[in-house]
Design a protein around this nucleic acid. Structure first.
Lengths: 348, 348
DNA sequence: TGTTAGCACTCTATACGATTGAGTGCTAAT
DNA sequence: ATTAGCACTCAATCGTATAGAGTGCTAACA
């Protein structure tokens, strides 16, 4: 498709452009890279590359700029992904050493690190509750007429809601209810809670629906809590350091996008994402208007072989892909490693 | 100190400046406001006001701009705070009607509303745990070797941590521990947990420290959780709509400031804040460098007569103070009202 | 036939000067 | 005390000239 020389030249251009954010001219390439070619030859090749759609020209007398298609080729075949520097690895290790024993905190911390070492914006989601199963359900009496419903999922996520219960219910009875609920629900996926099960529970503790209803509501609330999927964002202002966002209009567009957690969480839960693979979406490959000039690098983390969440880095299409990718690879490993520690070896 | 006419003129200038963000000239004032004065007279008065420090001039041939001192006078004595429009009141009411039964959600929602109706950035904090007392402490067995420690404070805040416990501990025994803990700690303030109390607890359940330690750690973790004070931010990008932040450097300064949750939480927990009063800090009155061109309007909410958290709006010094203040007043009332509902009437 | 030197051409960015217009301060008249 | 009038100031705007980076094309070369 593209002969070796063209590929070399394209890579040189993109490498340079990632570095400088300035359109790259033929002379620059001839001088900086040892290709043994004159600027005129390179000029011809660049014209070809443009015709093929890998490069674009802001205006006739400017240098060339990579197109999304160009970046795609670069990412798939041209770039050299080097190992993370020892320094960075050390830094990550140190940052993750902070004793973490809850999932959300682990992910939050990972997100912080990613934004710090990449200098872009990072985003992460905790598991979708709906895909999880109940590990424990507890009803804890707080004071007369009030109880706390707690749901713990197999992915280690904890959610709780305060509910009101009829005043005449004694704490002891609540605990009894709690035990039955726990027995009945444990192991089920969250959306398996249906009327059959509820019937069984009612039967078992022979309690009027009146009592059970607020509690079940609490559970439902835990499950469908608006932000049941936490979205963490870090380094949101990093983007303002890049020249392509010097324009306030661009900057606002980007930042407004980040404000919509729903969108982000959708973005991160891309359907086609394969386990253990890093996914890269370049510019217009993101079908969302607000980030058509951004690239997104995402990875997932899993329990067993079920993907339960993901972490991503978003920045200008002119992104240091090699760096981001190697960092992402590293952090993904660490997350999965720590995840095992948190959940213990006895994860079903 | 300032005669009536000067005050009238100053108010007119500030009103106009808040509206337009453009330096105000003498002719504008003479034309738009019915003061029965010529531009020349106003010009003289403006020169006086500038000398007194209420106004400033960007350059010799420009109009006048209010100084921080000018805004201060305006806020304290000149502006007219009108009632919130029925429309707005209706809007707020509708937005808060969403069934809310946990404190954090209430505050979060209030913050969202404030940013929406003021068009500035809003910030809010949930109660400081340290000032609170224990309402309930529970240890819930999750699976062998693991338990969830839950702390509920009198202010309705719930925190939890997963802890490891020796595997030989049975769930029943954990529950027993839980009960003792609950009895012993209930009503204490969070930093009253000391070795005496721990001794008592050990005595009562005659358990080796080995078991108790992870649990107490869990409680400590709940108490000192890094972000035990949640900080909610909304409308962070609103600021980009105002001309004073058209410059990316300014915008970044502001947004970077917002990234530091610690600073914000300190900012909101201003020492001198009186209950039931709205506090206004104008420009350089905020001693923090990053927001010296911003004004901050804050209110607190309380349980009984203890301030447990606050909510604030931050925007350019050229802020629509009257609107912000009346909105703030309204939302504060609603928060305190809802707070009572959540905590029930039996709040000690 | 592929490569390169050379050159005319294009187009942006920058600098510079002139012009405009809003606004001021001062003076003199009311 | 107020105001009309006027000279003056200064940022913003516009047009023009200029410099410089980069291109495409042609013709010569290996």
């Amino acid at each position: 498709m593209l002969d070796e020389r063209k590929r070399r030249i394209l890579r040189a251009i993109i490498d340079d452009y990632i570095d400088t954010a300035e359109p790259i001219g033929s002379r620059t390439i001839a001088r900086k890279h040892e290709l043994g070619l004159s600027s005129a030859t390179i000029r011809n090749e660049m014209a070809d590359l443009e015709e093929m759609g890998y490069l674009a020209q802001p205006h006739t007398s400017a240098g060339r700029v990579p197109s999304d298609k160009g970046y795609r080729l670069y990412v798939d075949h041209l770039m050299k992904v080097n190992e993370l520097s020892l320094e960075d690895i050390e830094g990550i290790k140190r940052a993750m050493e902070v004793k973490i024993n809850e999932l959300s905190q682990l992910i939050r911390q990972a997100s912080v690190i990613m934004s710090r070492i990449t200098k872009y914006t990072s985003m992460a989601t905790t598991p979708q509750l709906k895909k999880s199963t109940f590990k424990a359900v507890q009803v804890v009496p707080i004071e007369t007429g009030k109880a706390l419903v707690i749901v713990v999922t197999n992915a280690g996520l904890v959610r709780n809601t305060l509910v009101k219960v009829p005043e005449r219910i004694t704490p002891d009875f609540l605990i009894q209810i709690s035990n039955v609920l726990n027995d009945k629900l444990k192991g089920l996926t969250l959306n398996q809670v249906n009327s059959t099960i509820i019937g069984e529970i009612e039967l078992e503790i022979s309690v009027s629906t009146e009592v059970l209803i607020p509690i079940l509501h609490g559970i439902a609330e835990c499950i469908s809590q608006v932000d049941s999927v936490d979205v963490f964002l870090d380094g949101t202002t990093n983007i303002l350091n890049y020249p392509e966002f010097r324009d306030v209009v661009k900057a606002r567009e980007f930042l407004s996008f980040l404000d919509e957690r729903e969108l982000i969480s959708k973005l991160l839960q891309s359907e086609e994402h394969k386990q253990d693979e890093i996914e890269i979406k370049i510019g217009s490959e993101n079908h969302l208007e607000g980030i058509k000039d951004c690239s997104l690098v995402t990875a997932t983390y899993s329990v067993g072989d079920v993907i339960i969440g993901s972490i991503g880095v978003i920045g200008p299409t002119r992104m240091e892909y090699p760096r981001v990718i190697s960092s992402m690879n590293h952090i993904r490993k660490i997350i999965n490693q720590e995840l095992k520690k948190i959940l213990g070896d006895n994860t079903e």
